[in-house]
Amino acid sequence: MQNFVMSMLWFWICYFAVTMIGVLHTVFNIYVLKMSPMDETGMGEGYEKTKPWHPLYNIILFSIFGWLYMRGLSVPTLKEALVTGGIWAGVCIIVDVIGWVIIKHPWSLSFKEFYINYQPWITLIYLVIFVGPVIGYLFV
């Protein structure tokens, strides 16, 4: 049986962890590897070089956190994993548009930068977030 509170707890911990890994990877590229930072003309090499890694961070972490959630259910099912994946991907899409596009900050992106220029990575990320709980279920 779905436990929405626990599902959201595991989701938010994972979302924060994935975001921090991506930010730290970018900062590492800029300050340690001396890649160009984000500026008025674009995202900069420091960020651009992290893009292919984003789906990898997400598939690893969302599968682990999907497993943590699924093993906490009394009787985990494939249906529960699919529902959880759908909820997680849906919440992520809404939070991303608010946090990375609508709310302006030094690392915010335009709609085009986030949903067009960030292809295929953003689509792969949403797919692996959806699949994460299913992979977790397979290991329960």
Rank of each mutant, 00 (worst) to 15 (best):
H25M: 12
S74P: 15
C92M: 13
I30N: 11
F65A: 07
L9K: 14
I13V: 09
V27M: 14
W53Y: 11
M8A: 05
I125L: 09
F16E: 10
K34I: 02
G22L: 13
I103P: 06
Q2H: 13
E45D: 08
Y115F: 15
F139S: 07
L124Y: 10
T50A: 01
H105P: 03
L68N: 00
M6E: 13
W10C: 12
V134G: 04
I60G: 05
Y115H: 12
E40C: 04
P55I: 10
L61Q: 06
S63M: 04
Y115P: 11
M8P: 06
Y126I: 06
T41L: 09
R71E: 12
G90I: 06
L109C: 01
F65G: 06
L56T: 08
G22Q: 14
W12L: 14
V95L: 12
L109W: 11
F4E: 11
V101G: 07
F114K: 14
I94P: 01
P76H: 02
M1T: 09
E48I: 12
V18N: 04
M38E: 13
I87V: 15
I59D: 00
L127F: 15
I102R: 00
M43A: 07
Y31M: 05
G99Q: 09
S7H: 13
D96I: 07
L73Q: 08
I64V: 13
R71W: 02
W12G: 15
L78K: 06
Y47M: 13
G90E: 01
V5P: 12
W67Q: 04
F62P: 08
L68H: 04
F139V: 04
T19K: 05
S108R: 00
A17D: 02
K104P: 05
F65R: 00
I102G: 01
G132H: 04
V83A: 08
F11L: 10
L61C: 07
T77A: 05
T84Q: 09
